[in-house]
Simulated scan of single mutants.
Amino acid sequence: MQTIGRIIAVAAVGAAAFGLTGCGSDDTGGTATTSTAADQPGGQVAPSESKGRECVADDIEVKGGFGEVPQITIPDDCDPPKQLVVKDLVPGSGPGAASGQQLTMNYALVTWSDRQQLDSSFDRGEPFELTLGDGMVIPGWEQGLEGVQQGARRLLIVPPDLGYGAGGNGVKPNETLVFVTDAVAVPQN
């Protein structure tokens, strides 16, 4: 299992490259498609028929409280969101995280297409440290962790353009990512 810490720097470069090469509009006016696991060359996520609605945060089932290994269940009756979804599942306290601050986070990552856990700092017993706004993490984390308070458990549903885009480092191209994060330490100044 690869850690987000080891693949994050490569992901930031890959996401930037994806953003530069994917500048066309994705509004085709047709039926929306979503990502599902399929026998695709190169492990790509294949489009499938729309379920008729995008999932919202409340559609994702998360069991476990702050500090506990989360159990994440992604439904199969709705499409992955096209925009970043952020929801605090357990409230924190104190000031919210701001750009330039060092955060200590625990996280679990489940991929939308196969609904399997790809990575978990909880399982390793080793939280992940990052400096918010320094480009150390994928854009979905940079945006999704703004304002997080110490002690908060936050759900992030990250669309491909804010995640790993074209894929790599264990993540399939065009994959939607579901993170459950715990803010272990947020500066209190």
Results as ranks from 00 to 15, higher is better:
1 M>Q: 12
7 I>N: 11
8 I>L: 09
8 I>D: 10
9 A>D: 12
9 A>V: 00
9 A>H: 10
9 A>E: 10
10 V>G: 15
13 V>R: 15
13 V>G: 08
15 A>Q: 14
15 A>G: 06
20 L>V: 07
20 L>A: 13
22 G>R: 15
22 G>V: 02
23 C>V: 11
27 D>V: 04
27 D>P: 04
29 G>R: 05
30 G>K: 07
31 T>G: 03
31 T>H: 08
34 T>M: 09
34 T>C: 01
34 T>K: 05
40 Q>W: 09
41 P>C: 00
45 V>P: 07
45 V>N: 11
46 A>R: 15
47 P>S: 03
48 S>E: 12
49 E>S: 14
51 K>L: 13
55 C>G: 11
57 A>W: 00
58 D>A: 13
58 D>N: 13
60 I>Q: 05
60 I>H: 08
64 G>M: 06
65 G>W: 00
65 G>I: 02
67 G>N: 09
68 E>K: 11
71 Q>N: 12
71 Q>L: 07
74 I>V: 11
76 D>Y: 01
79 D>V: 01
81 P>R: 09
83 Q>W: 06
83 Q>S: 10
85 V>P: 09
86 V>I: 14
86 V>D: 02
87 K>C: 08
87 K>T: 13
89 L>F: 00
90 V>D: 12
91 P>G: 06
94 G>H: 06
94 G>L: 02
97 A>K: 03
97 A>Q: 01
97 A>R: 03
98 A>I: 00
100 G>Q: 08
103 L>F: 04
103 L>W: 03
104 T>V: 14
106 N>H: 07
107 Y>G: 11
109 L>H: 11
110 V>C: 04
111 T>I: 12
111 T>M: 10
113 S>E: 06
114 D>Q: 12
114 D>S: 13
118 L>R: 14
118 L>K: 15
118 L>M: 12
120 S>H: 12
120 S>K: 07
122 F>D: 04
123 D>H: 05
125 G>R: 07
126 E>R: 14
126 E>Y: 00
127 P>Y: 08
128 F>D: 13
130 L>Q: 09
130 L>E: 09
135 G>V: 00
137 V>S: 14
142 E>L: 05
143 Q>M: 08
143 Q>E: 15
147 G>L: 08
150 Q>D: 03
150 Q>N: 06
152 A>P: 14
153 R>N: 09
155 L>Q: 01
157 I>S: 02
160 P>Q: 09
161 D>P: 13
163 G>F: 06
165 G>A: 15
165 G>P: 07
166 A>Y: 05
167 G>C: 02
168 G>K: 01
168 G>C: 04
172 K>T: 10
172 K>P: 15
172 K>R: 15
174 N>I: 03
175 E>D: 09
177 L>S: 12
182 D>T: 00
183 A>S: 13
184 V>E: 15
186 V>W: 03
